[in-house]
C-alpha cells in the first residue's frame, strides 16, 4: 500500500523524460596575463547538420550601461552565426553574467527551459568561449536525447577552456 502513492506521484508530476537531466561541468582556466577579462561564453545544442537546436546559456557583461556588453556578443563567433544573431538579448534563464576562473557546474532540466522542446535525436553540446584581448576556443561533446541510460562525455580545452564534462541522467 505504501508503494502506490509514490508511483502515483511519479506518474502525475511528470512524464518519464521529465526526470532527465543534463549536467555540465566546465572549467575556466586561470590565466597569467597582464590584462585579464572574464570570457564571454555560450553553451548551445547543435543538430547533426550543425544548426542550433537550443541555446542553453550565454554569459556576457550584462552590467554595462546601454547594454554596451552586447556589442561583443558577435565575438562568440560560431554561436553568433548559428543562433545569437537570431535572438534578442537578454533571454530569461539563458543570459547570465560572465564568470570567474574555476569550475562551474550547470544543470539543465528536461522539463523546463530550452531542453523541454528538444526532439529525440543525436546532438552535440557546444561550449564556446571568447575573451577580450584573448583568444577563442570551442569544444564539442556528443550526446543522445533523451538519454535512455546514463551518458557522459569529456573534452579538454587548451587555451580559453579547461576540462569540460557532460553527464546525462535518464
Amino acid at each position: 500500500m505504501r508503494i502506490l502513492p509514490i508511483l502515483a506521484a511519479a506518474g502525475l508530476t511528470a512524464a518519464p523524460a521529465a526526470a532527465a537531466e543534463l549536467k555540465l561541468t566546465l572549467e575556466i582556466p586561470r590565466l597569467e596575463v597582464a590584462e585579464y577579462h572574464r570570457p564571454y561564453l555560450a553553451i548551445w545544442v547543435e543538430r547533426p547538420d550543425q544548426q542550433a537546436a537550443a541555446t542553453l546559456a550565454v554569459w556576457y557583461d550584462m552590467g554595462q550601461r546601454n547594454a554596451e556588453g552586447e556589442k561583443w556578443l558577435k565575438d562568440i563567433r560560431q554561436w553568433w552565426r548559428r543562433a545569437g544573431r537570431e535572438m534578442r538579448m537578454p533571454v530569461d534563464g539563458v543570459s547570465g553574467a560572465t564568470r570567474a576562473p574555476g569550475r562551474h557546474g550547470l544543470t539543465f532540466d528536461a522539463a523546463k527551459g530550452p531542453l523541454s522542446d528538444l526532439p529525440p535525436g543525436s546532438y552535440t553540446l557546444v561550449v564556446e568561449a571568447a575573451r577580450e584581448v584573448g583568444g577563442r576556443e570551442l569544444l564539442r561533446l556528443p550526446f543522445q536525447w533523451p538519454p535512455a541510460a546514463a551518458q557522459s562525455a569529456q573534452a579538454q580545452g587548451n587555451s580559453e577552456l579547461g576540462a569540460v564534462s557532460l553527464d546525462l541522467r535518464p
Binding site: E68, G69, E70, W72, W80
Partner: peptide, 8 residues
C-alpha cells in the same frame, strides 16, 4: 561587417 548590440 558583422555587429551585435544596439549601439553599433
Amino acid at each position: 561587417t558583422v555587429l551585435s548590440g544596439d549601439n553599433s
